[in-house]
Design a protein around this nucleic acid. Sequence first.
DNA 1: CACCTTATATTTGGGCCCGAACAATTCTGA
DNA 2: TCAGAATTGTTCGGGCCCAAATATAAGGTG
Lengths: 188, 188
Amino acid sequence: MPGQRSITEAEKLAEAKLGGRVRHDQMAVVANIYRAASAVRQHLENSVLRGVDLTWTAFVVLWVVWIWGESETRHVAEEAGISKGTLTGVAGTLERRGLVRRANHPTDGRLVLLSLTDDGEKLMQRVFPAFNEEEAFVTGQLGEADCRTVAAGLRRVVLQVEEKGEERRQDLLGGAAPAPRRSGRRKA
Amino acid sequence: MPGQRSITEAEKLAEAKLGGRVRHDQMAVVANIYRAASAVRQHLENSVLRGVDLTWTAFVVLWVVWIWGESETRHVAEEAGISKGTLTGVAGTLERRGLVRRANHPTDGRLVLLSLTDDGEKLMQRVFPAFNEEEAFVTGQLGEADCRTVAAGLRRVVLQVEEKGEERRQDLLGGAAPAPRRSGRRKA
DNA sequence: CACCTTATATTTGGGCCCGAACAATTCTGA
DNA sequence: TCAGAATTGTTCGGGCCCAAATATAAGGTG
């Protein structure tokens, strides 16, 4: 409840602070993408995922391996939208719980392969239908055509960032070093 | 690049695994919401936020306080879409960096008020326009009308979850206790 | 072979994230 | 008045998150 009214309300306040230079419609898209992502994630975690003790990310990783079968970790990370370092941790959690298996690549010693265990397979057979049912619930106010329209619009956003984002960042930073994070590992 | 083709590809594989019971369009909406949210967040963090050493969440908190002025922390958390506990940490970080100030509520001793310092105010004056510019960039493939359509669709998703989500979860769990997280604090 | 470059997964530090437990305060009702 | 209920911010445990640093392995070049 806080959100919907406040987003549009906030736009006016932002505009007042800056003198009418705000790109409203674009701002609304970004704000609502993020708000929707949080709402959906929260709903899924609190309805179907919590009961089987999975986080959103853990579920996504499981899903990727389920769909694609045994896969190299670099691809799983890419598909799941997380960094390799994060995947190492998540895969460890799933491995400890006996849902996933690590294996060495037969010919390339650098690679690690992830696959589901029988338990993992059984879990996904059970959980995915429930998950998909909730996907239908959260989009319940949209017709099929609306769904396709919204999905298509979002795809264009993703595409824009994936295709032109890197170049854009180069331009913005003017070739300058890309400012290290304050957090993160230091040289020993 | 990995994403676009794989999402639709994955749908077919998921369907094969379950025998045509998958709700495609709804699944595509959720998948793309999340993918777009990640892409947008990553772009913003790596372009404008990194340079001023702000995380996405820290920026959002700053933005909320900037727009609404001195506010009770519970409202800030609500608006920023994070839990109270998380806000305590983020506000601490921002306070240490001198961007935000804590103050006691004049009449209710339980409340804490957050406001921007002069440095915080100056920072937002400088950073927000750049941020908004990138919001325009990531939505660059959408016209104004597309933006409004997509935003409206997302709003309906948010609304659906906010208005009917709680009830839905009740129904799904059948009044059963909502399964505690595995992580989290234990009784002393 | 020895060296160097490249490519991979893991480790690590700082930070975010949730929600239960907790402490402090305010409100309520007998 | 005053004990219990309710509301708030903080603390805390386990987990996710990134990117830099690191270790290991492959491939290439002399």
